[in-house]
């Protein structure tokens, strides 16, 4: 299972990289979103979630032996929240770009740069 998770993370990174290298702005945005998911899964995998028991205390209030590390899950939650906020902001920004100049090509982002 851990191997499958590693392959999944690798595929997500590959897809994200492919999208980020496109010229179409929408694909670049999708790439950034995919990259966020890939990174979150990578962080999650640091606690070895598939081979250990869930990170929940037992009935006696003591940790179960072989419990997964809970900290990466907290980190992933934080990263998801931050990532969500930033993604929404980026999408709104990109929408304004589309509307203003009808930019949908990444190369056009640099065109207005001459003073």
């Amino acid at each position: 299972m851990t191997t499958a998770l590693a392959i999944l993370i690798g595929l997500l990174f590959a897809a994200a990289t492919y999208c980020l290298l496109r010229r179409n702005l929408m694909r670049v945005l999708i790439g950034i979103l995919l990259l966020g998911h890939a990174v979150n899964l990578l962080l999650m995998s640091a606690s070895a979630p598939l081979t250990r028991a869930p990170a929940i205390l037992g009935a006696d209030g003591k940790p179960i032996p072989g419990m997964a590390d809970a900290l990466p899950q907290a980190l992933v939650l934080t990263a998801i929240v931050i990532g969500f906020g930033l993604s929404v902001f980026t999408l709104v920004l990109a929408r304004s770009c589309f509307q203003g100049k009808a930019i949908d090509d990444v190369h056009d982002l640099g065109k207005e740069d001459s003073p």
Binding site: V39, L86, F89, D113
Partner: peptide
């Protein structure tokens, strides 16, 4: 457009940082 470039590059950098930390 400049702002979008700035945002995208920084998001990318943050993702890499997070991978390294993970």
């Amino acid at each position: 457009p400049g702002g979008l470039t700035y945002v995208l590059l920084n998001l990318l950098a943050s993702a890499l940082f997070l991978s390294g930390a993970g």
